[in-house]
Design a protein around this nucleic acid. Structure first.
Lengths: 203, 203
DNA sequence: ATTTGACTATTTGAATAATAAAGTCAAATA
DNA sequence: TATTTGACTTTATTATTCAAATAGTCAAAT
Protein backbone atom coordinates (compact mmCIF):
# COMPACT_ATOMS: atom_id res chain seq x y z
CA UNK A 1 0.00 0.00 0.00
CA UNK A 2 1.40 3.36 -0.99
CA UNK A 3 1.77 6.28 1.39
CA UNK A 4 -1.11 7.98 -0.39
CA UNK A 5 -3.44 4.99 -0.17
CA UNK A 6 -2.68 4.74 3.51
CA UNK A 7 -3.65 8.33 4.13
CA UNK A 8 -6.86 7.80 2.18
CA UNK A 9 -7.66 4.82 4.38
CA UNK A 10 -7.01 6.88 7.48
CA UNK A 11 -9.35 9.60 6.28
CA UNK A 12 -12.05 7.06 5.49
CA UNK A 13 -11.78 5.40 8.87
CA UNK A 14 -11.79 8.70 10.73
CA UNK A 15 -14.77 9.93 8.74
CA UNK A 16 -16.60 6.66 9.40
CA UNK A 17 -16.15 7.09 13.14
CA UNK A 18 -17.68 10.55 13.06
CA UNK A 19 -20.44 9.55 10.64
CA UNK A 20 -21.36 6.58 12.82
CA UNK A 21 -21.48 8.76 15.91
CA UNK A 22 -23.04 12.00 14.78
CA UNK A 23 -24.43 11.19 11.34
CA UNK A 24 -23.18 12.40 7.97
CA UNK A 25 -24.95 15.76 8.06
CA UNK A 26 -23.63 16.67 11.48
CA UNK A 27 -20.04 15.96 10.48
CA UNK A 28 -17.99 18.70 8.84
CA UNK A 29 -14.86 18.31 6.80
CA UNK A 30 -13.03 20.52 9.28
CA UNK A 31 -13.90 18.18 12.12
CA UNK A 32 -12.58 15.19 10.21
CA UNK A 33 -9.40 17.13 9.47
CA UNK A 34 -9.06 18.09 13.13
CA UNK A 35 -9.46 14.47 14.21
CA UNK A 36 -6.55 13.63 11.93
CA UNK A 37 -4.56 16.61 13.21
CA UNK A 38 -4.49 17.66 9.62
CA UNK A 39 -5.99 20.46 7.57
CA UNK A 40 -9.21 20.57 5.62
CA UNK A 41 -7.30 21.41 2.46
CA UNK A 42 -5.38 18.21 2.85
CA UNK A 43 -8.62 16.24 2.79
CA UNK A 44 -9.42 17.86 -0.53
CA UNK A 45 -6.12 16.65 -1.87
CA UNK A 46 -7.37 13.08 -1.47
CA UNK A 47 -11.07 13.51 -2.15
CA UNK A 48 -12.48 15.98 -4.68
CA UNK A 49 -15.52 16.70 -2.52
CA UNK A 50 -17.48 15.57 0.51
CA UNK A 51 -19.82 13.46 -1.59
CA UNK A 52 -16.98 11.28 -2.82
CA UNK A 53 -15.66 10.87 0.70
CA UNK A 54 -19.10 9.73 1.83
CA UNK A 55 -19.25 7.32 -1.08
CA UNK A 56 -15.80 5.96 -0.19
CA UNK A 57 -16.88 5.48 3.43
CA UNK A 58 -19.97 3.56 2.40
CA UNK A 59 -17.95 1.42 0.00
CA UNK A 60 -15.50 0.73 2.81
CA UNK A 61 -18.33 -0.31 5.09
CA UNK A 62 -19.89 -2.57 2.49
CA UNK A 63 -16.51 -4.20 1.98
CA UNK A 64 -16.27 -5.01 5.68
CA UNK A 65 -19.82 -6.30 5.60
CA UNK A 66 -19.14 -8.48 2.61
CA UNK A 67 -15.97 -9.89 4.15
CA UNK A 68 -17.86 -10.74 7.32
CA UNK A 69 -20.73 -12.36 5.44
CA UNK A 70 -18.37 -14.37 3.24
CA UNK A 71 -16.47 -15.61 6.28
CA UNK A 72 -19.68 -16.86 7.88
CA UNK A 73 -20.97 -18.37 4.68
CA UNK A 74 -17.87 -20.51 4.30
CA UNK A 75 -18.77 -22.14 7.60
CA UNK A 76 -22.52 -22.29 6.94
CA UNK A 77 -23.85 -25.79 6.30
CA UNK A 78 -27.36 -24.83 5.21
CA UNK A 79 -29.58 -22.03 3.96
CA UNK A 80 -30.87 -21.63 7.46
CA UNK A 81 -27.42 -21.00 8.84
CA UNK A 82 -26.78 -18.58 6.01
CA UNK A 83 -29.95 -16.64 6.74
CA UNK A 84 -29.17 -16.58 10.44
CA UNK A 85 -25.75 -15.11 9.64
CA UNK A 86 -27.34 -12.44 7.49
CA UNK A 87 -29.76 -11.57 10.29
CA UNK A 88 -27.04 -11.37 12.94
CA UNK A 89 -24.49 -9.48 10.90
CA UNK A 90 -27.03 -7.06 9.47
CA UNK A 91 -28.41 -6.28 12.89
CA UNK A 92 -25.00 -5.80 14.39
CA UNK A 93 -24.22 -3.35 11.58
CA UNK A 94 -27.57 -1.64 12.02
CA UNK A 95 -26.80 -1.15 15.68
CA UNK A 96 -23.32 0.14 15.07
CA UNK A 97 -23.94 2.32 12.07
CA UNK A 98 -27.50 3.39 12.70
CA UNK A 99 -26.59 7.07 12.36
CA UNK A 100 -25.63 6.52 8.73
CA UNK A 101 -29.21 5.63 7.92
CA UNK A 102 -28.22 3.44 5.02
CA UNK A 103 -31.27 1.90 3.49
CA UNK A 104 -34.50 2.75 5.35
CA UNK A 105 -35.43 6.40 5.65
CA UNK A 106 -31.98 7.86 5.46
CA UNK A 107 -29.69 9.76 3.16
CA UNK A 108 -32.46 12.23 2.56
CA UNK A 109 -31.32 15.80 2.01
CA UNK A 110 -27.71 14.79 1.96
CA UNK A 111 -25.75 16.51 -0.77
CA UNK A 112 -24.57 13.34 -2.39
CA UNK A 113 -25.17 11.44 -5.56
CA UNK A 114 -27.99 9.33 -4.22
CA UNK A 115 -28.05 7.29 -7.40
CA UNK A 116 -24.42 6.27 -6.95
CA UNK A 117 -25.15 5.05 -3.43
CA UNK A 118 -28.24 3.21 -4.59
CA UNK A 119 -26.08 1.50 -7.21
CA UNK A 120 -23.42 0.22 -4.82
CA UNK A 121 -26.09 -0.86 -2.33
CA UNK A 122 -27.76 -2.73 -5.15
CA UNK A 123 -24.47 -4.42 -6.04
CA UNK A 124 -23.88 -5.44 -2.43
CA UNK A 125 -27.40 -6.82 -2.33
CA UNK A 126 -26.81 -8.84 -5.49
CA UNK A 127 -23.60 -10.29 -4.07
CA UNK A 128 -25.45 -11.34 -0.94
CA UNK A 129 -28.23 -12.96 -2.97
CA UNK A 130 -25.61 -14.87 -4.92
CA UNK A 131 -24.04 -16.25 -1.76
CA UNK A 132 -27.38 -17.35 -0.35
CA UNK A 133 -28.53 -18.78 -3.66
CA UNK A 134 -25.37 -20.90 -3.84
CA UNK A 135 -26.11 -22.26 -0.40
CA UNK A 136 -29.68 -22.99 -1.44
CA UNK A 137 -28.51 -24.81 -4.55
CA UNK A 138 -26.27 -26.98 -2.40
CA UNK A 139 -29.26 -27.77 -0.17
CA UNK A 140 -31.30 -28.61 -3.24
CA UNK A 141 -28.56 -30.89 -4.52
CA UNK A 142 -28.41 -32.62 -1.15
CA UNK A 143 -32.17 -33.15 -1.35
CA UNK A 144 -32.79 -31.06 1.75
CA UNK A 145 -34.48 -28.20 -0.08
CA UNK A 146 -37.20 -28.40 -2.72
CA UNK A 147 -36.28 -27.57 -6.28
CA UNK A 148 -37.11 -23.92 -6.86
CA UNK A 149 -35.66 -20.81 -8.52
CA UNK A 150 -32.71 -20.33 -6.14
CA UNK A 151 -32.03 -16.66 -6.90
CA UNK A 152 -35.65 -15.58 -6.64
CA UNK A 153 -36.04 -17.51 -3.42
CA UNK A 154 -32.85 -16.10 -1.92
CA UNK A 155 -33.83 -12.59 -2.93
CA UNK A 156 -37.27 -12.89 -1.38
CA UNK A 157 -35.91 -14.39 1.83
CA UNK A 158 -33.46 -11.49 2.23
CA UNK A 159 -36.12 -8.93 1.31
CA UNK A 160 -38.32 -10.38 4.01
CA UNK A 161 -35.63 -9.93 6.64
CA UNK A 162 -35.02 -6.36 5.47
CA UNK A 163 -38.76 -5.87 5.38
CA UNK A 164 -39.18 -6.97 8.98
CA UNK A 165 -36.45 -4.54 9.90
CA UNK A 166 -38.27 -1.71 8.14
CA UNK A 167 -41.56 -2.74 9.75
CA UNK A 168 -39.99 -2.51 13.16
CA UNK A 169 -38.64 0.97 12.43
CA UNK A 170 -42.00 2.22 11.21
CA UNK A 171 -43.76 0.91 14.28
CA UNK A 172 -41.41 2.81 16.57
CA UNK A 173 -41.56 6.54 17.10
CA UNK A 174 -39.90 8.24 14.21
CA UNK A 175 -36.53 9.98 14.49
CA UNK A 176 -35.70 8.24 17.72
CA UNK A 177 -32.42 6.45 18.13
CA UNK A 178 -33.34 2.83 18.79
CA UNK A 179 -32.10 1.07 21.90
CA UNK A 180 -30.55 -2.36 22.30
CA UNK A 181 -33.83 -4.09 23.13
CA UNK A 182 -35.26 -2.97 19.82
CA UNK A 183 -32.64 -4.92 17.92
CA UNK A 184 -32.94 -7.90 20.21
CA UNK A 185 -36.65 -8.14 19.57
CA UNK A 186 -36.15 -7.62 15.86
CA UNK A 187 -33.58 -10.40 15.69
CA UNK A 188 -35.95 -12.71 17.51
CA UNK A 189 -38.78 -12.00 15.12
CA UNK A 190 -36.55 -12.35 12.09
CA UNK A 191 -35.33 -15.74 13.27
CA UNK A 192 -38.85 -16.86 13.96
CA UNK A 193 -39.80 -15.74 10.44
CA UNK A 194 -36.76 -17.48 9.08
CA UNK A 195 -37.75 -20.72 10.78
CA UNK A 196 -41.25 -20.39 9.36
CA UNK A 197 -39.79 -19.87 5.95
CA UNK A 198 -37.48 -22.84 6.24
CA UNK A 199 -39.79 -25.31 7.84
CA UNK A 200 -42.92 -24.11 6.14
CA UNK A 201 -46.25 -23.59 7.80
CA UNK A 202 -47.87 -26.65 6.30
CA UNK A 203 -47.05 -30.28 6.86
CA UNK B 1 -78.79 7.62 12.19
CA UNK B 2 -79.48 11.10 13.44
CA UNK B 3 -79.34 14.18 11.26
CA UNK B 4 -76.14 15.15 13.05
CA UNK B 5 -74.45 11.81 12.53
CA UNK B 6 -75.34 12.00 8.86
CA UNK B 7 -73.68 15.37 8.48
CA UNK B 8 -70.60 14.06 10.25
CA UNK B 9 -70.45 11.16 7.82
CA UNK B 10 -70.75 13.57 4.90
CA UNK B 11 -67.89 15.65 6.22
CA UNK B 12 -65.72 12.58 6.72
CA UNK B 13 -66.38 11.29 3.23
CA UNK B 14 -65.75 14.64 1.63
CA UNK B 15 -62.56 15.10 3.60
CA UNK B 16 -61.42 11.60 2.65
CA UNK B 17 -61.84 12.40 -1.04
CA UNK B 18 -59.67 15.50 -0.75
CA UNK B 19 -57.10 13.79 1.48
CA UNK B 20 -56.82 10.87 -0.92
CA UNK B 21 -56.33 13.20 -3.85
CA UNK B 22 -54.15 16.00 -2.55
CA UNK B 23 -52.89 14.69 0.78
CA UNK B 24 -53.80 15.85 4.26
CA UNK B 25 -51.45 18.83 4.36
CA UNK B 26 -52.62 20.24 1.05
CA UNK B 27 -56.26 20.14 2.10
CA UNK B 28 -57.72 23.11 3.98
CA UNK B 29 -60.81 23.17 6.12
CA UNK B 30 -62.25 25.87 3.85
CA UNK B 31 -61.93 23.61 0.84
CA UNK B 32 -63.74 20.79 2.59
CA UNK B 33 -66.48 23.24 3.60
CA UNK B 34 -66.73 24.53 0.03
CA UNK B 35 -67.03 20.99 -1.31
CA UNK B 36 -70.01 20.55 1.00
CA UNK B 37 -71.43 23.93 0.00
CA UNK B 38 -71.17 24.73 3.66
CA UNK B 39 -69.14 27.03 5.84
CA UNK B 40 -65.93 26.34 7.61
CA UNK B 41 -67.49 27.31 10.94
CA UNK B 42 -70.03 24.57 10.41
CA UNK B 43 -67.22 22.02 10.23
CA UNK B 44 -66.04 23.19 13.60
CA UNK B 45 -69.49 22.55 14.99
CA UNK B 46 -68.96 18.85 14.26
CA UNK B 47 -65.23 18.52 14.84
CA UNK B 48 -63.33 20.46 17.48
CA UNK B 49 -60.25 20.76 15.26
CA UNK B 50 -58.60 19.49 12.12
CA UNK B 51 -56.70 16.80 13.98
CA UNK B 52 -59.90 15.12 15.14
CA UNK B 53 -61.34 15.25 11.63
CA UNK B 54 -58.21 13.55 10.32
CA UNK B 55 -58.51 10.93 13.04
CA UNK B 56 -62.17 10.35 12.17
CA UNK B 57 -61.28 9.96 8.49
CA UNK B 58 -58.62 7.39 9.28
CA UNK B 59 -60.99 5.49 11.56
CA UNK B 60 -63.56 5.54 8.77
CA UNK B 61 -61.03 4.15 6.33
CA UNK B 62 -59.94 1.40 8.69
CA UNK B 63 -63.58 0.44 9.16
CA UNK B 64 -64.01 0.03 5.41
CA UNK B 65 -60.79 -1.96 5.29
CA UNK B 66 -61.89 -4.20 8.12
CA UNK B 67 -65.29 -4.80 6.52
CA UNK B 68 -63.63 -5.74 3.25
CA UNK B 69 -61.16 -8.09 4.93
CA UNK B 70 -63.87 -9.75 7.01
CA UNK B 71 -65.98 -10.32 3.90
CA UNK B 72 -63.09 -12.05 2.14
CA UNK B 73 -62.14 -14.06 5.21
CA UNK B 74 -65.62 -15.54 5.46
CA UNK B 75 -65.08 -17.04 2.01
CA UNK B 76 -61.44 -18.01 2.57
CA UNK B 77 -60.86 -21.73 2.93
CA UNK B 78 -57.23 -21.61 4.03
CA UNK B 79 -54.49 -19.44 5.47
CA UNK B 80 -53.12 -19.03 2.00
CA UNK B 81 -56.39 -17.60 0.71
CA UNK B 82 -56.51 -15.34 3.74
CA UNK B 83 -53.02 -14.01 3.13
CA UNK B 84 -53.76 -13.50 -0.54
CA UNK B 85 -56.80 -11.44 0.44
CA UNK B 86 -54.70 -9.32 2.76
CA UNK B 87 -52.15 -8.74 0.01
CA UNK B 88 -54.77 -7.78 -2.57
CA UNK B 89 -56.89 -5.58 -0.35
CA UNK B 90 -53.92 -3.86 1.23
CA UNK B 91 -52.41 -3.10 -2.14
CA UNK B 92 -55.66 -1.82 -3.53
CA UNK B 93 -55.93 0.50 -0.53
CA UNK B 94 -52.30 1.53 -0.87
CA UNK B 95 -52.98 2.47 -4.49
CA UNK B 96 -56.15 4.38 -3.73
CA UNK B 97 -55.08 6.14 -0.55
CA UNK B 98 -51.39 6.54 -1.19
CA UNK B 99 -51.57 10.29 -0.57
CA UNK B 100 -52.56 9.68 3.04
CA UNK B 101 -49.22 8.01 3.67
CA UNK B 102 -50.59 5.84 6.42
CA UNK B 103 -47.90 3.55 7.75
CA UNK B 104 -44.55 3.93 5.94
CA UNK B 105 -42.93 7.37 5.89
CA UNK B 106 -46.04 9.44 6.26
CA UNK B 107 -47.89 11.58 8.73
CA UNK B 108 -44.66 13.43 9.46
CA UNK B 109 -45.09 17.13 10.20
CA UNK B 110 -48.83 16.82 10.28
CA UNK B 111 -50.36 18.65 13.21
CA UNK B 112 -52.12 15.65 14.62
CA UNK B 113 -51.91 13.42 17.62
CA UNK B 114 -49.55 10.88 16.11
CA UNK B 115 -49.91 8.63 19.12
CA UNK B 116 -53.68 8.40 18.67
CA UNK B 117 -53.23 7.34 15.05
CA UNK B 118 -50.60 4.80 16.01
CA UNK B 119 -53.03 3.37 18.53
CA UNK B 120 -55.90 2.85 16.10
CA UNK B 121 -53.55 1.46 13.49
CA UNK B 122 -52.28 -0.96 16.13
CA UNK B 123 -55.84 -1.99 16.94
CA UNK B 124 -56.63 -2.57 13.29
CA UNK B 125 -53.49 -4.66 13.01
CA UNK B 126 -54.48 -6.76 16.02
CA UNK B 127 -57.92 -7.39 14.53
CA UNK B 128 -56.32 -8.54 11.30
CA UNK B 129 -53.96 -10.86 13.13
CA UNK B 130 -56.92 -12.35 14.98
CA UNK B 131 -58.73 -13.11 11.74
CA UNK B 132 -55.67 -14.75 10.19
CA UNK B 133 -54.86 -16.66 13.36
CA UNK B 134 -58.39 -18.08 13.40
CA UNK B 135 -57.96 -19.29 9.86
CA UNK B 136 -54.62 -20.82 10.79
CA UNK B 137 -56.15 -22.61 13.76
CA UNK B 138 -58.76 -24.09 11.47
CA UNK B 139 -56.00 -25.30 9.14
CA UNK B 140 -54.20 -26.79 12.10
CA UNK B 141 -57.37 -28.55 13.22
CA UNK B 142 -57.84 -29.91 9.72
CA UNK B 143 -54.29 -31.23 9.82
CA UNK B 144 -53.22 -29.08 6.88
CA UNK B 145 -50.98 -26.79 8.92
CA UNK B 146 -48.40 -27.76 11.50
CA UNK B 147 -49.12 -27.05 15.14
CA UNK B 148 -47.55 -23.72 16.01
CA UNK B 149 -48.34 -20.49 17.91
CA UNK B 150 -51.11 -19.23 15.63
CA UNK B 151 -51.01 -15.58 16.68
CA UNK B 152 -47.24 -15.24 16.45
CA UNK B 153 -47.25 -16.94 13.08
CA UNK B 154 -50.08 -14.79 11.76
CA UNK B 155 -48.40 -11.65 13.02
CA UNK B 156 -45.09 -12.54 11.40
CA UNK B 157 -46.75 -13.45 8.11
CA UNK B 158 -48.53 -10.09 7.98
CA UNK B 159 -45.42 -8.20 9.06
CA UNK B 160 -43.54 -9.83 6.21
CA UNK B 161 -46.09 -8.65 3.69
CA UNK B 162 -45.98 -5.12 5.13
CA UNK B 163 -42.20 -5.38 5.20
CA UNK B 164 -42.00 -6.28 1.53
CA UNK B 165 -44.20 -3.28 0.81
CA UNK B 166 -41.83 -1.03 2.76
CA UNK B 167 -38.82 -2.60 1.02
CA UNK B 168 -40.32 -1.78 -2.34
CA UNK B 169 -40.90 1.84 -1.30
CA UNK B 170 -37.35 2.25 -0.03
CA UNK B 171 -35.88 0.84 -3.22
CA UNK B 172 -37.79 3.35 -5.34
CA UNK B 173 -36.88 7.00 -5.57
CA UNK B 174 -38.23 8.77 -2.53
CA UNK B 175 -41.16 11.16 -2.62
CA UNK B 176 -42.32 9.91 -5.97
CA UNK B 177 -45.91 8.89 -6.46
CA UNK B 178 -45.77 5.22 -7.41
CA UNK B 179 -47.32 4.00 -10.63
CA UNK B 180 -49.52 0.98 -11.29
CA UNK B 181 -46.66 -1.28 -12.30
CA UNK B 182 -45.02 -0.71 -8.93
CA UNK B 183 -47.99 -2.26 -7.13
CA UNK B 184 -48.29 -5.05 -9.68
CA UNK B 185 -44.70 -6.07 -9.11
CA UNK B 186 -45.08 -5.76 -5.35
CA UNK B 187 -48.17 -7.98 -5.36
CA UNK B 188 -46.30 -10.55 -7.39
CA UNK B 189 -43.38 -10.63 -4.98
CA UNK B 190 -45.65 -10.76 -1.96
CA UNK B 191 -47.52 -13.73 -3.39
CA UNK B 192 -44.29 -15.49 -4.21
CA UNK B 193 -43.15 -14.89 -0.64
CA UNK B 194 -46.50 -16.06 0.64
CA UNK B 195 -46.19 -19.28 -1.34
CA UNK B 196 -42.72 -19.83 0.07
CA UNK B 197 -44.05 -19.28 3.54
CA UNK B 198 -46.92 -21.67 3.04
CA UNK B 199 -45.16 -24.44 1.21
CA UNK B 200 -41.87 -24.08 2.99
CA UNK B 201 -38.49 -24.17 1.36
CA UNK B 202 -37.56 -27.60 2.60
CA UNK B 203 -39.10 -30.95 1.72
C1' DA C 1 -79.96 22.45 17.20
C1' DT C 2 -77.57 24.11 13.39
C1' DT C 3 -75.55 27.52 10.36
C1' DT C 4 -73.11 31.57 9.19
C1' DG C 5 -70.23 35.91 8.32
C1' DA C 6 -67.02 38.38 10.37
C1' DC C 7 -63.70 38.12 13.41
C1' DT C 8 -58.88 36.72 15.88
C1' DA C 9 -55.01 33.55 16.58
C1' DT C 10 -51.74 30.50 14.58
C1' DT C 11 -49.16 28.56 11.19
C1' DT C 12 -46.84 28.53 6.96
C1' DG C 13 -43.90 30.19 3.23
C1' DA C 14 -41.14 33.38 0.89
C1' DA C 15 -37.48 36.76 1.28
C1' DT C 16 -33.49 38.24 3.53
C1' DA C 17 -29.58 38.44 6.46
C1' DA C 18 -26.19 36.08 9.16
C1' DT C 19 -23.51 32.15 9.87
C1' DA C 20 -21.29 27.94 8.95
C1' DA C 21 -19.55 24.84 6.04
C1' DA C 22 -17.74 23.46 1.44
C1' DG C 23 -14.39 24.06 -1.66
C1' DT C 24 -9.93 26.60 -3.92
C1' DC C 25 -5.29 28.06 -4.42
C1' DA C 26 -0.69 30.07 -4.19
C1' DA C 27 2.97 29.50 -1.26
C1' DA C 28 5.49 26.52 2.04
C1' DT C 29 7.43 22.19 3.30
C1' DA C 30 9.56 17.82 3.17
C1' DT D 1 7.58 16.05 -7.03
C1' DA D 2 4.11 14.94 -3.71
C1' DT D 3 1.93 16.69 0.06
C1' DT D 4 0.41 20.12 3.34
C1' DT D 5 -1.35 24.42 4.80
C1' DG D 6 -3.51 29.12 6.06
C1' DA D 7 -6.04 32.37 4.07
C1' DC D 8 -9.31 32.93 0.96
C1' DT D 9 -13.99 32.63 -1.94
C1' DT D 10 -18.18 30.32 -2.88
C1' DT D 11 -22.02 27.73 -1.63
C1' DA D 12 -25.28 25.91 1.58
C1' DT D 13 -27.57 26.08 5.94
C1' DT D 14 -29.80 28.34 9.58
C1' DA D 15 -32.14 32.22 11.89
C1' DT D 16 -35.18 35.96 11.43
C1' DT D 17 -38.65 38.65 9.76
C1' DC D 18 -43.06 39.52 7.94
C1' DA D 19 -47.06 39.01 4.89
C1' DA D 20 -50.37 35.69 3.46
C1' DA D 21 -52.84 31.55 4.32
C1' DT D 22 -55.14 28.75 7.31
C1' DA D 23 -56.97 27.28 11.71
C1' DG D 24 -60.07 28.25 14.96
C1' DT D 25 -63.92 31.39 17.64
C1' DC D 26 -68.20 33.56 18.52
C1' DA D 27 -72.35 36.38 18.64
C1' DA D 28 -76.19 36.76 15.83
C1' DA D 29 -79.45 34.54 12.52
C1' DT D 30 -82.17 30.68 11.03
Amino acid sequence: MSESDHKQEQIIETALKRFAHFGINKTTMSEIADDLSSSKASLYYYFPDKASLILAVIKHLLKIYHTEITKHFRKAGSVKEGLYSIIDIRNSFARKYFMLHLGSEGLQDITVNEQAIKTILREAEQAEITLLAELLEKDMAKGIARERDARATARTAIDMMIGLHLSSIVKKERRIIPDESHFDELTKQQKFACDLLIEGINK
